[in-house]
């Protein structure tokens, strides 16, 4: 474990907590894409298949449980909670996210580190996570006024993977044979997708104006 990865995990945890805070306290999911939340629940479900088979550390197991429980409960809140579901804007959240699942799965069948069920599911979860933010970014461009919590949520979600890139660089130089091209490339693609969001987020923070993404 290195400082970049710990910071990355904490940033990821913070993004989930910000979202849960928003949904649980103000009972609203305005501006949040249910599709992205569903994709993230699928990412964790397919990545943490080894939750009960390979014990790595208490920290690892605990964080996996937190991410699994929080992502599924966020999906439940938006879909079934009698108050929260009313603020879900399904007419705007129209990204065909199922079109992301199949290509990621096919790609995982073709490009993976080992052709086993667990490894293919793990690789699938990496590719899917790289594109999971797309419905949310599209929704942000449609909803004119982005509230602070939503902006912070997306920012933290993008920042965590950027910190992971620093972690991979650190591990590459400090651990022999630590080479995971698949992880690195999908992590880089994921971070690049946030590039323009980061730009507008930084501009709104610098000029102290409301965050707005150009349509």
């Amino acid at each position: 474990m290195n400082i970049f990865r710990l910071a990355g995990d904490m940033t990821h945890l913070a993004s989930v907590l910000v979202l849960l805070l928003k949904i649980h306290t103000i009972k609203s999911c305005a501006g949040i894409s249910l599709k992205t939340q569903e994709l993230y629940a699928l990412v964790f479900a397919t990545r943490y298949l080894d939750l009960f088979t390979d014990y790595i550390s208490l920290y690892n197991t605990l964080m996996k449980l937190i991410f699994l429980v929080s992502s599924f409960s966020i999906v439940w809140y938006i879909r079934h909670h009698k108050i929260v579901r009313r603020s879900y804007d399904k007419d705007q959240d129209t990204f065909r996210h199922y079109f992301l699942v199949l290509p990621c799965f096919l790609l995982a069948l073709v490009i993976n580190e080992k052709f086993t069920v667990k490894e293919i599911m793990w690789t699938f979860s990496l590719y899917l996570e790289a594109v999971a933010i797309l419905p949310q970014l599209v929704l942000l461009q449609r909803t004119r006024n982005i509230d602070n919590l939503t902006g912070q949520y997306v920012f933290l979600l993008g920042a965590y993977r950027s910190l992971y890139i620093l972690n991979w660089i650190y591990r590459y130089f400090t651990e022999p044979h630590y080479v995971h091209w698949i992880t690195w490339i999908s992590g880089l693609v994921q971070t690049l997708l946030y590039a323009d969001f980061f730009y507008y987020y930084f501009q709104s923070w610098k000029n102290n104006v409301k965050l707005e993404l150009p349509a």
Binding site: H12, D50, T183
Partner: peptide
């Protein structure tokens, strides 16, 4: 040697 793919990251 079976390179046990050790996914120790989240």
């Amino acid at each position: 040697l079976e390179t046990f793919l050790y996914h120790d990251e989240l």
